[in-house]
């Protein structure tokens, strides 16, 4: 479903701020894979996700999603293949527009925009039905500006938007990191439910080791621009935080120095 081949990305080349973010990363995701991606700050997790999404061009290597080589495609052209939820709840929605308008934008992902009405009556009914199971009461607030919603509500809405038109690959970039713990759990469970129901191929960044172990069928750990651990299947099910830390130490030769990941 996704194959990332030997990609390399350096930021600010030739300056004192030069930073190699991805060092020849290769990874393949099978259809239906739910991968949790973990690693310390600066490990290259977000760079990997943003490279796949086309936020910036990569220096070397290629990216193929569902048989389409997207390496040279601009961000908006790849969007038809991707569903994305960002870390910042403000990032995934248009704050000054209504809930239904945001959903209508997402419903047309990958379609050419025309001079037809931006939202139809039939769609409104559908959005109501889809919002109801979220249990947030949004189904009765279709014409509320998204800016008035809480962070958790906005992330739940963004999640719905990302999956409204089934994406070939769902990219979750620490989408619960900015929420309070209780809301974060809810949004995470909701994500899990969406992914299972739709059998969506997913790549989810998290800082939380427990979540990385609890969710998904495969765990990838990055360090200093490399993939250092790739654990799947039965092995992943048996994983604990302690033995993950131990394996990290063995592979990287360093302590896993990230309070956020440890304490969470």
């Amino acid at each position: 479903m996704l194959s990332v081949n030997d990609i390399y990305k350096v930021f600010n080349p030739g300056t004192v701020n030069e930073k190699v973010a991805l060092r020849n990363v290769t990874v393949t995701l099978e259809e239906g894979d739910f991968v949790t991606l973990i690693g310390g700050n600066g490990a290259g997790k977000s760079t990997l996700l943003n490279s796949i999404a086309g936020v910036f061009p990569i220096d070397k290597g290629s990216i193929v999603i569902d048989g389409v080589d997207v390496t040279k495609l601009s961000e908006h052209k790849r969007a038809s293949l991707l569903g994305r939820v960002f870390q910042d709840p403000m990032m995934g929605t248009a704050a000054n527009m209504w809930i239904e308008e945001n959903l209508a934008l997402a419903f047309r992902r990958g379609k050419k925009r025309t001079l037809k009405w931006g939202i139809t009556h039939k769609e409104r009914m559908m959005y109501k039905e889809l919002l109801e199971p979220l249990g947030l009461g949004l189904e009765n607030r279709l014409t509320t500006k998204v800016g008035l919603l809480s962070g958790g509500q906005r992330q739940a809405l963004t999640l719905l938007m990302a999956t409204l038109k089934r994406p070939k690959l769902l990219l979750l970039d620490e989408h619960t990191a900015a929420l309070d713990p209780k809301t974060a759990q809810k949004v995470l469970e909701l994500s899990d439910q969406f992914i299972k129901e739709g059998n969506l191929t997913t790549l989810m960044i998290t800082h939380n080791m427990r979540d990385a172990i609890k969710y998904g069928n495969r765990l990838i750990m990055m360090h200093d621009g490399h993939i250092i651990l790739d654990i799947k299947g039965e092995e992943k099910k048996k994983l604990t935080v302690e033995n993950l830390l131990e394996r990290f130490g063995k592979v990287s030769g360093e302590e896993f120095a990230n309070d956020r990941a440890l304490l969470a």
Binding site: A53, S74, E75, H76, K77, A79, S80, L82, R84, F86, M90, M91, G92, T93, A94, A95, N96, M97, E101, N102, A104, L105, A106, R108, R109, G110, K111, R113, T114, L115, K116, W117, G118, I119, M161
Partner: peptide
């Protein structure tokens, strides 16, 4: 109120989100 019009309004609001929805 059209699809293009909505996309223009959203562009002024949150261009990153708009690109993620496949709009130039």
């Amino acid at each position: 109120g059209t699809e293009i019009g909505c996309a223009i309004r959203a562009t002024g609001n949150n261009p990153k989100m708009v690109r993620a929805q496949g709009i130039n």
